[in-house]
Amino acid sequence: MKIDGLSPMERMAYEQNVYAYRDIKNGMDSARREGEAKANMKVARMMKAKGFDVSLISEITGLSEDQIAEL
């Protein structure tokens, strides 16, 4: 889309839509990361309860060994 040919009102509306899209996308990305982190913590807790080695839990979940020790 060429924004050079837009009127000032059209350009303002376009920019507002772009900002709204970015806000929504950032919110969705943040929620996804939070959900993934919670899932990794749950898996780590289960693995720790089953006696898995902390370094293996860290490798699989991406959590640090310190984070796993706190579970």
Rank of each mutant, 00 (worst) to 15 (best):
S64C: 13
A69V: 06
V54T: 12
R22L: 14
M1T: 06
K38W: 05
A37I: 07
K50L: 09
L63K: 15
D53S: 11
S7I: 09
S30H: 05
I3N: 04
N17C: 12
N40P: 00
S30F: 07
R22S: 08
R22I: 11
M28H: 01
I57G: 12
E36M: 07
Y14H: 05
A13Q: 11
K50T: 04
A44F: 03
T61A: 11
A49C: 00
K50G: 03
Q16V: 01
E59N: 09
I57K: 11
R22A: 10
L71A: 07
K42L: 06
S64R: 13
D66I: 09
V54D: 04
A44G: 02
A20Y: 01
E34H: 04
E36C: 02
I3Q: 03
Y21G: 08
R45F: 03
G51E: 02
R33A: 02
E34T: 05
A49G: 01
E15D: 14
A44E: 05
G27Q: 11
G51V: 05
M47V: 00
L6M: 15
D66H: 11
S30P: 00
D4T: 11
I24V: 13
E70D: 09
N26Q: 15
I68R: 08
K38G: 04
S30K: 07
L63I: 11
M47T: 00
K48L: 03
S58P: 06
E59M: 08
E65K: 10
A13P: 02
E36H: 08
L56V: 07
M46L: 12
A49K: 06
Q16F: 03
G27A: 06
S55V: 13
L71M: 10
P8R: 15
M46E: 12
I24P: 01
M46S: 09
N40I: 00
E36W: 06
N40E: 02
N17R: 15
K48R: 04
I57P: 15
D4Q: 12
A20I: 04
R11T: 08
K50N: 09
I24T: 14
F52L: 08
G51A: 03
Y21K: 15
I68C: 09
I57E: 11
R33L: 02
G27V: 03
E10R: 07
A44Y: 05
M1E: 11
D66Q: 15
A44K: 03
A44R: 01
S30E: 03
E15N: 14
Y14C: 01
G62K: 10
V54I: 14
E10T: 05
A31R: 06
L63H: 13
R32H: 02
G35I: 02
D53N: 14
K25P: 04
M41K: 03
M28L: 10
R33N: 01
G27N: 12
L63W: 14
Q67W: 05
D66T: 14
R22H: 11
